[in-house]
Amino acid sequence: MKIEVTRSTCVGAGQCVLVADDLFDQDDDGLVVLIEEDPGEDRVESARLAASLCPARAIQVRE
C-alpha cells in the first residue's frame, strides 16, 4: 500500500488525524503531514477511511 497526500488541496480539517493519528499529522497551519507513506497492510482500512472522509479529498491510497 502507498499513501499520497496533496498538500495544495488540503483544507486542514484534521479528519485524517482523527481517524488515523499513526499515519497522519497536521503542521501549524493545519495542513496534512504524512507520517507513514508505506504502512503495513493492517493499516489499509484506516488509511482508506481517512481518504474517504477527507473533505478536500487530498489523500490517495494505492495498493
Partner: peptide, 13 residues
C-alpha cells in the same frame, strides 16, 4: 487554530 480545533473536535465526535 486548526490543530486545537481538531483536538476538541475529537471530543465532540
Amino acid at each position: 487554530m486548526p490543530k486545537p480545533f481538531r483536538t476538541h473536535r475529537a471530543a465532540l465526535l
